[in-house]
Simulated assay, not measured.
Amino acid sequence: MFLCLKRATAACVLTTAGAVALAACGAPDAPRAVTAPAPAVTAPSRPPTLAPGPGGLTPVFVKAAGARDRTVALTFDADMTADQGPRAAAGERFDNPRLIRTLRRLKVPATVFMTGRWAEEYPRQARAIGRDPLFEVANHSYSHHAFTEDCYGLPTVPASGMRADVERAFTAFRAAGIEHPMPYFRFPGGCYDQRALKALSGTGVTAVQWDVVSGDAFATDADAVARQVLDGVRPGSVVVMHCTRSAAPATEEALRTIVPELRERGYRFVKVSELI
Rank of each mutant, 00 (worst) to 15 (best):
F2C: 15
C4A: 14
L5P: 11
A10Y: 00
V13N: 08
A21S: 14
A30D: 13
R32L: 14
A38Y: 05
P39E: 07
P44E: 08
R46N: 15
T49W: 01
P52L: 00
D77V: 03
A78K: 00
T81P: 04
P86F: 01
A88N: 11
A88Y: 11
A89D: 10
G91F: 04
E92T: 12
F94S: 02
R105A: 10
L106A: 15
V108F: 05
P109Q: 13
A110T: 05
V112D: 11
F113T: 01
T115P: 00
T115D: 02
G116V: 10
G116N: 12
R117K: 09
W118N: 02
E120P: 10
Q125A: 13
R131N: 15
V137C: 09
A138V: 01
A138L: 03
F147G: 09
T148H: 09
T148R: 09
G153N: 03
P155F: 12
P158N: 11
A164N: 06
A164D: 07
A164W: 05
D165E: 08
A172H: 09
M182D: 02
P183Y: 01
G189V: 03
G190K: 03
R195C: 04
L197E: 00
G202Y: 07
G204K: 05
V208R: 00
W210F: 03
D211V: 07
V225G: 06
R227H: 15
Q228C: 14
V238W: 04
V240K: 02
S246E: 10
A248F: 07
P249H: 06
T251R: 07
L255I: 01
I258K: 03
G266K: 08
G266C: 07
R268W: 07
F269S: 06
